[in-house]
Amino acid sequence: MKIRPLTIEGAFEVTPVQHGDDRGTFLEWYRFDALAEAVGHRLDLAQANLSVSARGVVRGIHFADVPPGQAKYVTCVSGAVLDVVVDIRAGSPTFGAWEAVRLDDADRRAVYLAEGLGHGFCALTDGATVAYLCSSTYRPGHEHGVHPFDEQLGIEWPVERPVLSGKDAEAPTLAEALAVGLLPRYDDCAAYIEARRG
């Protein structure tokens, strides 16, 4: 398993080693010890989610209040998605930056994103099935979004006619979310993660 940091602090791309023969393929798609060594603390697993999306569906950009936030370990078990991590932490050196990784059922990569980062993806195939391991459970009222087509972010989604949920379509821009104090603060996220390492 190869784990490499992305350009956004707290985000990592994970590439598993696949073992194949005439029976099929075997791989370890998650190893708590390897991830903990890379990120500096273990991922507490509190919830596992699965979503299935039609081609052209865009989900996100989603995030949770910190603390406790919601770290995620995301992989695509069927089909393909363009997975996007967005730095929405107010005061971060890379505030507003984003990075994309293709997740699919061929390379079987995964993405880890720390508490306080925004997450979204675009389904590149019909039936794109995404599995998430989450560090905390869903908490109504503490989960938020930023509009995925916010011009300030400028995410290059590979879709001509995106399909959004009503909630995502009505999400505020990054500037609007910042103005009303909705975004996590970089210092708070760093302190929370440092406490986890301690």
Rank of each mutant, 00 (worst) to 15 (best):
G120L: 10
L178S: 11
A169N: 11
F26G: 01
P172K: 13
N49D: 13
G154F: 14
R89Q: 04
Q47L: 11
Q152G: 00
H119V: 02
N49Y: 10
D65C: 04
A123S: 10
V130Y: 00
W98C: 06
Q18N: 10
E9R: 14
L50Y: 01
G145P: 00
L35A: 10
L174Q: 11
A38L: 10
D107L: 15
C134K: 10
L50V: 12
W157I: 08
G79L: 13
P67Q: 07
G69M: 10
A131S: 09
F121E: 02
A128L: 03
P162R: 08
V17A: 15
R102W: 00
A190E: 12
H119C: 03
I155F: 07
Q47C: 07
M1A: 13
I61C: 04
R4P: 09
G154L: 07
K72T: 09
N49P: 03
Y30W: 15
V74C: 09
T7K: 15
D44G: 09
A34V: 08
A64K: 03
C122W: 07
A131D: 02
R55A: 14
L6C: 11
H147E: 08
A36L: 13
P16W: 09
A175D: 14
N49E: 04
V101Q: 08
L35V: 12
D87P: 06
V58I: 11
D107T: 15
E170R: 12
G118S: 02
S51E: 07
E170H: 06
L27Q: 14
G69Q: 06
V146N: 08
H144A: 02
V58T: 07
V86M: 03
P93F: 09
P148N: 04
V130G: 00
Y192E: 04
T125N: 11
L124C: 06
A90W: 00
G79E: 10
G118N: 05
I155H: 08
M1Y: 13
G116N: 03
T94V: 02
R161W: 06
F95S: 05
T129E: 14
